[in-house]
Amino acid sequence: MDAFLIQILNGLDKGSAYALIALGLTLIFGTLGVVNFAHGALFMVGAFCAVTLQRVLTLSFETVDETQKDFLGNPLKVKTPYVESWFGPEAGAWIIDWAVPLAVLIAIPIMLLVGYVMERGLIKHFYKRPHADQILVTFGLAIVIQEIVKYFFGANPIQTPPPDALNGVANLGAALGMEIVYPVWRIVYFCFSVLIIGGIFAFLQFTTFGMVVRAGMADRETVGLLGINIDRKFTIMFGIAAAVAGLAGVMYGPINPPNYHMGMDFLVLSFVVVVVGGMGSLPGAVLAGFLLGILESFASTTWATTTIPGINQIIIYLVAIIVLLTRPRGLMGRKGVMEE
């Protein structure tokens, strides 16, 4: 039983990442009808927002400390980060420690801006072009973003540790009398993603803006005829989708150190998630994300890998193929979306 719960927990954090990326992909596809192959790159850019903030915060100046000597007897040079000298050593250390959660704050405006620029500058011109062209141009864009990040940050993964307070493990099963020890940060990640997913759904359900967007997803032309500037609203939705992917990336850094091709690795799987969930269905994307994450974690158990070697590598694709062949619209796909 304990092992069973652990596997579900294991699946939840990867599933959260899948669900968040797939949610963004579906938002873009549902509103603008564009297949965004650069979405994984946005996830990666988000992760590198955290890296950048961490580097900025740890920028430091050197002072010569006369009281301490290094091994040669010379006065020791001490590096002090600027934030520590500005806010005092304790507050400064706290800020540096909490760099990753703080990066969420700067990632939101950055990603909104990136999404806005991307839509207005590039994707806008591709609405009337075939899907193949959309795939190709966003694929090219993904390569470009990836290479730019590689140029500035190098090819190696960069460690982004979580805050000390959230770095340990916790026994989740204590209340139930079970032994379920699990890294705290992964639980934080899961809660964070549930929060974002809930926020997006609430935003679409309970605000006027969300209502208009939903109406636009159902029938863009009629909403336009009613005198609403639907293009503008959809552009903002693109920004929001980019921000969701970016936030997923920011918080994923401590689980898996960001490198420049992490986006591509996630993108392929997220597409599979979208297709399994049903193209254009937001709940489907979230459901399929968690479902495939959990399935993958069950397939990674020693029992599964000894029964069928390597099943953990191919389970997601197998499920996708089976789902597409038995339920061609995906788990929760609507009729009439991408049916041509």
């Binding site: 795939i135 392929v268 599979v272 099943i311 590598q313 191919i314 597409l324 061609p328």
Partner: peptide, 28 residues
């Protein structure tokens, strides 16, 4: 059986699966 974007993603999934098979599964 599917066309358009579904076809692209299906072929992508198959290719990635073959890659995973070749890389680890079929080399035990």
């Amino acid at each position: 059986r599917r066309s358009g974007i579904y076809f692209s993603i299906l072929t992508l999934a198959f290719a990635q699966m073959s890659f995973a098979l070749a890389y680890s599964v079929l080399s035990n």
